[in-house]
Design a binder for these strands. Structure first.
Lengths: 274, 274
DNA sequence: ACCGGTTTTTGAACATGTTCAAGCAGAGGG
DNA sequence: CCCTCTGCTTGAACATGTTCAAAAACCGGT
């Protein structure tokens, strides 16, 4: 009986699979009420100031009940993340419609994220903090691939594939790029989290400056002079970045034949006694 | 009397300035005992498993006393960070002696960090998590520049300046690079934190692969074909990365004359009701 | 309508980070 | 020797995330 197949028990572990299950049961409703209440309070008072007791009370349930649906307070963040990713994908797609220029499309996608996240700027810091914990399954880097991450990467595939740049790229690069663009977003998010300028204007400028540069790098990568560099960079990304991100099942032996031993050998240094 | 000028009260806020104040008072000793005990327990049991009560008991003081010296549990991490940075700088410098090749020097510096941090792999995840909080003064990105960060950047300046690459670079680039190399370390740290391979072998391989690439990029940046790209990248870094990192006092108006308005204008999207 | 099982809900109990009013110790002065 | 002041120390009390045994609600079958 430990695998409780039905219902929403251990919901936090089940749901990543599908936020969808409509399930006539009113249980889903309770879950929804708790999540919505939590998100409202997070937005109103911030993460730390919102106690589980307050969430429960406001949602009209007991504190234990909240824990029945969400493994921990952090798992409530998951709900936020999923929803925002979804909203972002929708919004960005609609804004990009008709635009062809790659740099522009990329900027639109990134700015769209900033707009979607604007209300949660303070709260998001907390989210980011959580994401930085490798033990937390919330981490976008964790191998158990988030469906949310897949959604985001898919968006960036569209950014690329419906742009004027797509036909000019070789297939291999086109394969890597969506994940790299997603990484670009992660960098922007990092920047944004630390951005204290009013209305995060600075992050917006950062995006405005960095997207044309990214576009240029990608464009140039086709030229002869850059070949060897691009080849090595690709290798690095394929062997070390994507697997970590959960894209591929982590090859124990990198695809390159010669993974020569590091030049520097282990040697534990010990700090000198004070 | 609120500014208690002397002593170590509010020590956590005083000390970042100077770990030094020897202060005959035995109070310094109490502080040291608490910090050492905490670090030992962190190493032995991990951060979360180590309770403040345990630290206090093992250190032979009361729990309240620990709070007299350290504003919170997180501030104990500061102690760890400072010490490790110092050890790293020392160890890396000694290992690099005589080596001239830039890529090699860089790899040595990074591997040295991995060795210094090895004992704290699990614990460091927690540290990283803390560092990801922009409100925490522990964050290496916070504007109130950590002395520890300065130490680390200085190390990378040495990595560069004593290498065979130094004479070939223009002054402007040489100015930026130490910070960028430090960022490289940050990326490695990020990788390392998430690395679950035994003995973090994977991170070591990652370093081994990424350092020659970094060296190559820097080398190539001198060539004609790359000029415009390098120029823009420099601008981006100077205007947006370094100020955020606390290197320069954050110019409200970027140095470029034309900071044209973002192409995409604010437009708050609202998620469709379920 | 009743029964056995399963899902949902409850609230008290627990663990742990943090605070604070009160106690203690040593230094200086009388 | 006693008084006082100041920096140090204490431990009980508090706030809040989390657990858990038990109660309640629900459901399908008879």
């Amino acid at each position: 009986m430990e695998d409780n197949k039905g219902g929403a028990a251990r919901a936090a572990e089940e749901l990543p699979g599908g936020r969808a299950l409509p399930k006539t049961g009113k249980s889903e409703q309770t879950r929804a009420v708790i999540l919505e209440t939590a998100m409202r309070l997070f937005r109103e008072r911030g993460y730390d100031k919102t106690t589980m007791r307050a969430i429960a009370t406001e949602a009209g349930v007991s504190v234990g009940n909240a824990y029945y649906y969400f493994e921990s307070k952090e798992f409530l963040i998951q709900g936020f993340y999923d929803q925002m990713t979804h909203d972002h994908a929708r919004d960005a797609a609609s804004r990009m419609e008709g635009v062809r220029d790659f740099a522009e499309r990329l900027e639109i996608a990134l700015v769209s994220w900033l707009d979607c996240a604007a209300d949660y700027h303070e709260f998001a810091a907390q989210f980011f903090r959580t994401a930085a914990d490798p033990d937390s399954s919330l981490s976008p880097f964790s191998n158990e691939s988030h469906p949310a991450r897949a959604t985001a990467v898919a968006l960036f595939r569209d950014v690329l594939m419906d742009s004027d740049l797509a036909p000019k790229l070789d297939a291999e690069l086109a394969e890597l790029l969506p994940d790299l663009l997603w990484l670009h977003l992660m960098v922007v998010v990092l920047y944004w989290v630390f951005d204290r300028s009013p209305d995060t204007t600075r992050t917006r400028e950062f995006v405005h400056r960095s997207t044309p540069l990214a576009a240029r790098v990608i464009s140039l990568s086709r030229y002869r002079a850059f070949r060897p560099l691009v080849r090595d960079a690709k290798g690095l990304i394929q062997d070390f970045i994507l697997p970590t991100i959960g894209r591929t099942p982590l090859p124990d032996r990198p695809t390159t034949t010669d993974a020569s031993a590091p030049t520097t050998r282990r040697r534990k240094p010990r700090k000198p006694a004070t």
